[in-house]
Design a protein around this nucleic acid. Structure first.
Length: 258
DNA sequence: ATGACTAATAGCATTAGA
């Protein structure tokens, strides 16, 4: 079985002990990381090598930053960044070939406040992502696009829709752009296995959101048709959100037949 | 109605997050 996980770690330096602990406890074959929040030279590749993981990464000073780790195999980079905007220097996209799969790790722009330039950037970024995903689809390879999409797909994916109604994460434009990805033939694995919703991947640090289970689902795993046929199971490592010095996101994972 | 909390930066407050 191949296990592909995604984890918005909110700072790889601040989170390193928690991250290594999660890798050793859950042992994903592939782990996509978001918000590493470090420049390339600050990436702790040696700490991952020490527990058997090889990596590629695309860092940035202060915020953003993505990486792909693989258990005992070197991910072969296919692309970093999305085409379509030469002005966009954010480190939010990395794609590799590993264990016979095409794997894209994404950190989609938050988009708040909306309306405004950040929201416009988010929507443009989603169209650029759609173009890249269409190109991957055309290759007819088993593929997974996973990471922090910063989109709450439906009302059943948030503890209280009214509390988030004005947020960029659940605006109709954000949801429509996400729905277009699914319409192109990609399968939202967690939604497929949890048709009634109620699954969260993020809990705010503020206002006791974790203790009250005030969360929402914004980390997703989208499978190409070639890989969706091989889906076995998926889930959220919820308990890791409750640990000391935790990220505000929990890891998500899917297992697929080799 | 507001703020709450956390991480990063050369910072001693601000930006960004969601």
């Amino acid at each position: 079985m191949i296990k592909v996980a995604s984890f918005n770690i909110n700072g790889i330096k601040a989170r390193l002990p928690r991250l290594l602990e999660w890798l050793e406890e859950t042992r994903p074959s592939i782990a996509c990381l978001q918000e590493i929040k470090t420049q390339d030279e600050g990436f702790p590749a040696k700490d991952f090598e020490a527990i058997g993981y090889k990596a590629i990464w695309h860092g940035q000073k202060g915020f953003n930053g993505v990486a792909i780790l693989a258990d005992g195999e070197q991910p072969v980079e296919v692309q970093r960044g999305l085409e379509g905007d030469p002005e966009d220097l954010h480190s939010r996209y990395i794609e590799a070939e590993v264990f016979g799969l095409r794997v894209a790790g994404i950190y989609l722009p938050n988009g708040n406040p909306q309306p405004g330039p950040k929201f416009d950037y988010k929507l443009r970024w989603m169209e650029r992502l759609r173009a890249r995903m269409a190109a991957i689809s055309a290759e007819e390879v088993p593929a997974i696009v996973t990471g922090d999409f910063n989109v709450i797909p439906e009302d059943q994916d948030v503890w209280a829709p009214s509390a988030m109604a004005a947020d960029a994460l659940m605006q109709p434009q954000s949801r429509d752009a996400y729905a277009r990805l699914l319409g192109d033939g990609w399968t939202d694995a967690i939604a497929l296995h949890n048709p009634r919703g109620g699954v969260w991947t993020y809990w705010d640090y503020q206002a006791g959101a974790w203790q009250r289970d005030h969360g929402f689902r914004i980390d997703h795993a989208l499978l190409s048709p070639e890989l969706a046929d091989r889906l076995v199971d998926c889930g959220v490592d919820k308990a890791h959100r409750g640990r000391e010095k935790a990220s505000d996101h929990a890891p998500i994972w899917v297992t697929v037949r080799p």
